[in-house]
Amino acid sequence: MTLLRLIDLEVRYGAIRALQDVNVDVSEGEIVALLGANGAGKTTTLRTISGLARPVKGSVQFAGREIHRLPPHEVVGLGIGHAPEGRRIFPQMSVLENLEMGAYRRRGDLHQDTERVYSLFPVLKQRRRQDGGTLSGGEQQMLAIGRALMSAPRLLLLDEPSMGLAPLVVETIFSIISEIRKTGTTILLVEQNAAQALALADRAYVLENGRVVMADKARTLLNNERVRAAYLGEGAA
């Protein structure tokens, strides 16, 4: 079943066309990757889904409902959790408070949810009283993902979780992302690290200058000449 559908999406920043004719489908239970260079429109796509950017054309459908006119604080309530680019941890709130912010629209006991995040990221439990701003980059990324999970999302948007992190930390985070998928959460992943993303994802879309130029199974794209040359850093002839 299709959980998220982007139809002919066009987004502008002033005179600049950030996205054009973007069509993306994400089915329940999938991990889908959005690949592309800086400025290709990956982050804009996620921001449009979350309601932070407004499309001038096209629509965003989530679980069969049009959501592109909703403000961000309502979108999260529908079941879309967003771990934004640059992590955006609240620096002067404790780790626990950051997690509680993720569940801002939920009522009732959050104990089970925080325990679940702590079991995925044990280091966050150790640091739960520490201010978010004092964490390392990797820990902040874990907190950003954990915070997004606190909204109990059906769809998790991850924007460049590997950015600026050491290879070992990236390994850890990617293995946890596949753990999260096993619990039934659908994931839309934006990455510049195409090799890692394609190893993890079921399918992927390649964006260039705001347009989708390729869409296929991740395994197929891994073997695609053009993808290998442009995004996997292998010099093609």
């Binding site: 403000p71 961000p72 999260v76 967003h82 955006r88 408070e97 801002y104």
Partner: peptide, 24 residues
């Protein structure tokens, strides 16, 4: 309080607060 956390979140990063479900 919830309001207090909302106030602090908006003060620290309004856009991210809205992603968390805070009505700015």
């Amino acid at each position: 309080s919830k309001l207090g956390k909302g106030i602090r979140a908006v003060a620290q990063d309004a856009e991210t607060a809205s992603l968390m479900g805070v009505n700015i």
